[in-house]
Amino acid sequence: MTKVAGWGREFRLWHYTVSYSQLLLRSIDINDSTKRIDLLFSNVERMQVSSEYNHLTIEEFASSTDPKLSELGLQVPKFGKIFLINGGPDFVTATHCQWHEDDGDARSPSKFGPLRGTD
Rank of each mutant, 00 (worst) to 15 (best):
T2S: 12
T2I: 13
K3G: 08
W7R: 02
W7E: 01
R9C: 07
R9V: 07
R9L: 13
E10A: 13
W14N: 11
W14I: 08
W14D: 13
T17F: 06
S19H: 10
S19Y: 08
Y20E: 15
Y20I: 15
S21Q: 13
R26V: 10
S27N: 00
I28Y: 00
I28P: 00
I30G: 00
I30A: 00
T34L: 00
D38Q: 09
D38N: 14
L39Q: 01
E52K: 12
E52Y: 11
Y53S: 05
H55V: 09
H55E: 15
I58C: 06
E60S: 12
F61T: 00
A62D: 15
S63L: 07
L69Y: 05
L72S: 02
L72C: 03
Q75P: 04
Q75S: 11
P77G: 01
F79V: 14
F79R: 15
F79H: 15
K81R: 15
F83V: 12
I85P: 03
N86L: 05
N86D: 09
G87I: 04
G87T: 09
G87W: 09
V92T: 05
V92P: 02
H96L: 05
Q98T: 13
W99D: 04
W99V: 05
H100D: 06
E101L: 04
D102L: 00
D102T: 01
D105E: 11
D105V: 02
G113I: 10
G113M: 09
P114F: 09
R116Y: 10
T118S: 08
